[in-house]
């Protein structure tokens, strides 16, 4: 499956990655090769096959609705690039 450079740029935008035109050319080749590998899947008729999401087909456990965590806001926010007064600071989104 051959991608074009525009598709590469579209995928990059979806993934919040910036790709220069020169890099798009490189990624186009590499991603197309990976998709060629993946294309082998198409040949298999799986209309009667149930998708496997978990090796044990386990469903998510329920747990009692109890508070288990203590407040560790300051500790967790210490790892943030920019936090103040308990808030994560980001560029202005709404004028």
């Amino acid at each position: 499956m051959a991608l074009d450079n525009k598709t590469v740029q579209d995928i990059a935008r979806l993934a919040r990655l910036s790709v220069s035109d020169q890099q798009a050319e490189k990624y186009r080749g590499e991603l197309s090769n990976i998709l060629d590998l993946v294309a082998q899947m198409e040949a298999v008729d799986t209309s009667d096959v149930e998708p496997m999401t978990h090796p044990f087909d386990a469903t998510l456990r329920m747990r009692p609705d109890a508070v288990t965590e203590s407040n560790q806001r300051e500790e967790f926010q210490a790892a943030a690039p920019n936090a103040e007064s308990g808030l994560y600071l980001v560029p202005k989104v709404i004028d």
């Binding site: 993946v38 298999v44 096959v49 149930e50 998708p51």
Partner: peptide
């Protein structure tokens, strides 16, 4: 075409 099909193949492999 991709993720769901891959999960079905995963079942066949299992």
């Amino acid at each position: 075409a991709y993720y769901a099909q891959a999960q079905k193949l995963r079942r066949l492999i299992s």
